[in-house]
Design a binder for these strands. Structure first.
Lengths: 135, 135
DNA sequence: CTACGAATTCAAGAGCACTTGAGGTCAAGC
DNA sequence: GCTTGACCTCAAGTGCTCTTGAATTCGTAG
């Protein structure tokens, strides 16, 4: 099986080598061996990295992801957890959509001050603070 | 004009007093005076706080917002900047939608391993890492 | 065989958004 | 008047995700 050195993984994933080392330390990825000092990675690490990016976007912390594809190897993802997270994403999406529309309106609005624009004021009432990163 | 003490602002905004003090220090809000030691706030601070929450959700940092409604008083929001940010939001929304759909699919998918599911693999290819919090 | 440059380790630092703790003060209620 | 408790200040700490720097090792080209 083809192995990649860290520079190649970095180049193909777009992540700096320091991040890759950091991820390995956190247990998010694994190198398959060494050539001298140098880490060797299986090509599949690229998929793993894509998965991590996906998870990050979905709001998982690195630690949570480390647990998910934890001790074993293949990601043992809890389906209920995924659905929960999908619902969460739905909320975030709706929130962002309101904000985007709000921003566009405000940019176009001719009211003397944003605070005097009724649309803007309505927007503000809906502007709940963004979901804190899991407290 | 009615003034609020920090506890009331905290209660009505849902933010802890420590955060309000922190925001004041950052120049995001202002107290109108003191009663002894205690800060007094105009009711309008609640609108400002909603605006801040909005901005956070839209991806502005606290510092950027402090600049926006900077020295002066009323928010001097740059309309071009808003549109730019709205476009950015659009991207983020599309990204999140893909991820949400992906999560739902994976949760329902019966492929032996997620990595063997073609839909999942397609998803991974689209899972760019989430836009870094303005570097 | 030597020199170069890329990779390694480990510790520390960075940026953001807050929170916490220690120690002090003051308005209000009794 | 005195206690109480909310509020104050200031410094430091937290959590997350990385990045940076110094000192070192090693494979490869020449």
């Amino acid at each position: 099986m083809k192995t990649l050195d860290i520079a190649e993984v970095a180049q193909r994933s777009g992540l700096p080598a320091s991040t890759l080392r950091f991820y390995e330390e956190k247990g998010l990825i694994r190198s398959t061996g060494r050539h001298g000092l140098r880490r060797l990675f299986a090509e599949s690490v690229l998929e793993r990295l894509a998965l991590i990016a996906l998870g990050q976007g979905a709001g998982f912390t690195l630690e949570e992801m480390a647990e998910m594809f934890g001790a074993d190897g293949r990601p043992a993802i809890d389906r209920a957890r995924l659905l929960e997270q999908a619902d969460d994403l739905d909320k975030r999406i709706r929130h962002l959509v309101r904000m985007r529309d709000g921003l566009r309106h405000v940019a176009a609005c001719t009211a003397p001050s944003h605070l005097e624009c009724p649309t803007f004021r309505r927007l503000l009432r809906h502007a709940a603070r963004p979901p804190r990163r899991r407290p």
